[in-house]
Every structure is written in C-alpha cells, then in structure tokens.
Design a protein around this nucleic acid. Structure first.
Length: 426
RNA sequence: GUGGUCGUAGCUCAGCUGGUAGAGCAUCAGGUUGUGAUCCUGAGGGUCGCGGGUUCGAGCCCCGUCGAUCACCCCA
C-alpha cells in the first residue's frame, strides 16, 4: 500500500460524505428542537484563556491532564476548549445578557486522551444551557428537550439516569462521609481507587473494577445528606418528569465528571450494548460556575450530547441514516461537454439540482453514472440533438427502470427544457 | 497513562507447519452501428502499516515503532 506522508493526528478524523451530511442533519434537528423552545445559538471561540477552564475544577482529568494548552505569540496562556459549558458561562459574564439566558450550541472540543471508539481527541457535541433561573422545572425542561431530540432522531432505547448532588454544603458533607467510609475500608479498595480517593472521593463511586463493587454498593448514599431545600428540588424534578411521562432511573452513584455540578445531575445512556462509551451525554445544574468566573451569583443548568456516541446509538438501533442527497437531473452530453456545462448551469439557477459527467466519456459510461447519481431524469445531448437544437429527456426511475430501450423518453426542443422539467417535477 | 487484540489491493477478507501474494465487491474498458440492471470478457490497482532482526529465503517467527480497537482510567 502506498503510505501517505500525512495522516490525521491520533484521535482526529475526517468526516466524509455521506456521513458529513448526517452530521449536518443531526445539528439541524437539534437546532429545531432547541429553537422551538426559545433557545438561541451561541457561537464561541475554540480558544479561551486557560483560566476559564481551570475554574471547572482541579479534581478532573479534563482540566489537569487532558487540555491542549499553549502560550501564544502575545504571551497569553490559552487552551483549546475541552468543553463548552465554561465558555458559555464566560460569554455570559462578558456580555451580561438578560436572564434567563437560554442558549444552544454545537462545536468541536479537544481533550488529550487515549482514543477509542466513541472517544476522540477532537469530538463534537451539541448542547443547551440556561443561566439565571433555578426553577426545578427548568431542569425538567432541559431533560425533556434532550428526550425530544432523541425521539426526533428515532432513538427509542435511551435511558435517563438521574441523581441529585444536593447543595454545595450537602455535597461537602457527603464527600466527607464518603471519604471516611472508604478510608475505614481502605484494605478492600483497589489500588487505583485509593488514588482516586485522594483526588475526588465521589469518583470512587464510578469505579468499574469488580473488586470495588461490594464496597461501593454498601457506601453511604447521597440522599441521606440532602438539606430540606435540596430534597424539595429533587422531588420537584422527579414530579415534573413524571408529569411529562418521561421515564427515569435514579442512580445514586451518578456523579458527573466535572465537579461544578450541584443539585440535579443526569445522563442519557444508549440502550444497546453496555460499552464503556455508552454515555450519550449528560448534564446538570451548576449554580456556582458563573460566580467562579467572576460574574454575579447565577444559577445554571444544561447538558451536552456527543455526536459520535449518539450516532453510534443510531446505528445500533438502525435509525437516522445518512440523508439521501440525490440530484434531480443528470445531464449526459457526448458532444464534448459544453452543452452539459450550459444545461446544468441553467437548471441549477432555476433551483433544479443537476449533475453531469466530465472527460467526455462514452454514452454508456455516462448513463451508468447517471444511474448511480440517483437522478430522476436524464437529459441527453448527442450530436443529432445538438444539430437539431433538441434534447432527450429520459425518466430514470419509472417502471422498468433499467430497460435499455428508448421507450418512455421524449425528444423536445432545447428551449423548452426548463419548462418541461419544471412541469414534470411538480 | 496501563494492559490485551489486531494492521494484506479503494472496501470486506483468504493466505496450511516461513519459499518473493489471491478472492469477492468496487473502479475502468469492451460485448458491432448513440442509452442505466443482470450476464459474459478483459484491464488497472498491493514493495503484505513502518523500521530493524533471525533465516539460503518472511505476509507468516522475534524486537521496536505508528495506528486502530477492547478493558481500566477518564468522560461525551
């Protein structure tokens, strides 16, 4: 095999047609669902000051080990965004829009991880955030929009996992208790989890090592630490979901990766296969993040979905196939190509999609390409037609589509072509 | 970052205990005089991821490296 000198960097890839059209459609559907709920798109830079992301927390690998950061020519220490919530909050603090600020976004993010299927160093997400309202029904609205989006894609096997981390003080007391619990049972904890325990006791709950399972199962539950306010918020969220008929599973072990979360946290998991990468997306409430970025105390809630993982789930369920991008008309020209050049240009200008072959290939060859193009009509120009000022219009998708006889096709004046096609296609 | 598996034509793969590579699909061209399926014929396309080593000789063995993938980790 000829080895290319250059290839994509690890964990980065090219999205080619028709998959690229599917990506675009994916974002379009998300935009529809979001904008129908009053959300507007925010487009923020790929790069931010490193500090913006450091506010996310220092107990997460996303910030401590996985950032693409560098010093630019002006001496600023900046980073490729590893996530978008912090950028949105930064934008909020910078521009101070009216609240509640309801936005949606899409874009690439970067994390220096070891790549795997459904986990890339450059990956895309869609997401929504709302800043400036702490109504538990807003949490529900957010989750419901995600749910609607999955339904719009055709996914039916998504599970909604739900938990609450309580208020910051609740969370702190729980972390403390958890730490005490694990430390009292340190001997039966895996080595890796001992390390995790030092950094972030909550994350020990996420360990998938079998030897940790019994200890985790018997660990204290966050629910025992809720303040009355936190308990009320969580109950309202559950009541809202129930009122909307959205099924959910409470998972007390659900602690999201980024440690700015308060109260509600949730995650959508794909129904097929229990892969390590089956989390399609997730989110929650982060009532402290805006403040930590220098803004006023502002509640926030949102979620993000991974494009790749969600599309993998679509593949598994056999839904949301790449859109068909067939052209309306294929122009076959055996007289050198100038006719095809003019006809395709004329048709396109009139809103009829049209394609053609190049390099003046044989009629048979051009007809094969026309067939493959999926065009409903072939417009054929040979020397006879050119001389007579005519074109042949041949339907490609009717009855015996591959009949090589010339029945069904019509010869018309070249000047009548546009009108003929417009009529035939309406 | 740690460990396992894998890496042969554009794609999916075959290649027995080592003897200088094959199939299907795809592509292209023909099958008489200007027309798409199928069918028939033919053609192009690979220094077997890359680099070393062992051997008279390696796609098959060994080492390294790069990449993909799976698990851990992390998370979307």
């Amino acid at each position: 095999m000829l080895v290319p000198e250059f290839q994509t960097s690890p964990g980065m890839r090219d999205i080619l047609p028709p998959e690229s059209a599917r990506w675009r459609r994916f974002v379009e559907v998300f935009a529809q669902v979001s904008e129908a709920a009053g959300y507007g798109q925010v487009i923020s830079p790929l790069l931010e000051d490193l500090g913006v992301f450091q506010r996310i927390g220092d107990a997460t690998d996303v910030v401590t080990k996985e950032m693409y950061d560098f010093v630019d020519k002006g001496g600023r220490h900046i980073a490729l965004r590893p996530e978008l919530t912090a950028s949105v909050c930064r934008a909020f603090v910078q521009h101070r829009p009216l609240t509640p600020w309801k936005v949606w976004y899409t874009g690439s993010q970067f994390r220096y991880e070891k790549p795997q299927r459904g986990r890339y160093r450059q990956f895309d997400q869609v997401g929504i955030e709302v800043l400036g309202a702490d109504d538990p029904y807003l949490d529900v609205e957010i989750m419901a929009l995600g749910w609607q989006f999955f339904r719009a894609l055709g996914l039916s096997q998504v599970t909604l996992l739900l938990n609450s981390l309580g208020e910051p003080a609740d969370r702190a007391r729980y972390v403390h208790a958890l730490q005490a619990y694990f430390e009292a049972n340190l001997s039966s904890l895996s080595e890796a989890s001992k390390v995790t325990l030092q950094k972030n006791p909550l994350r020990v709950l996420d360990s998938k090592r079998p030897e940790d399972a019994p200890l985790i199962a018997a660990a204290p539950r966050i629910a025992e630490f809720y303040s009355p306010l936190a308990a009320a918020h969580f109950e309202a969220v559950q009541a809202g979901l129930t009122a909307l008929g959205i099924p959910f599973t409470i998972d007390p072990k659900l602690v999201r990766g980024l440690d700015y979360y308060r109260h509600t946290t949730f995650e959508y998991t794909g129904g097929t296969l229990e892969s390590a990468q089956n989390a399609l997306g997730g989110g929650g409430r982060y009532d402290g993040l805006v403040e930590s970025l220098g803004g006023p105390s502002t509640p926030g809630v949102g979620f993000a979905l991974g494009l790749d993982r969600t599309l993998i789930a679509c593949d598994d369920e056999g839904v949301f196939a790449p859109p068909v991008t067939d052209v309306d008309v294929f122009v076959v020209d055996t007289t050198g190509g100038l006719q095809a050049l003019q006809i395709t240009d004329q048709l396109r200008a009139a809103g009829i999609s049209a394609d053609r072959a190049f390099e003046n290939r044989s009629m048979k060859s051009q007809m094969k390409v026309a067939d493959r193009s999926g065009a409903a009509w072939a417009v054929i120009v040979g020397s006879n037609e050119l001389e007579a000022g005519e074109v042949v219009v041949r339907p490609m998708r009717t009855g015996d589509a591959h009949d090589s006889t010339q029945s069904g096709q019509t010869t018309i004046l070249r000047t009548d072509l546009l009108e003929y096609l417009q009529k035939a296609m309406s």
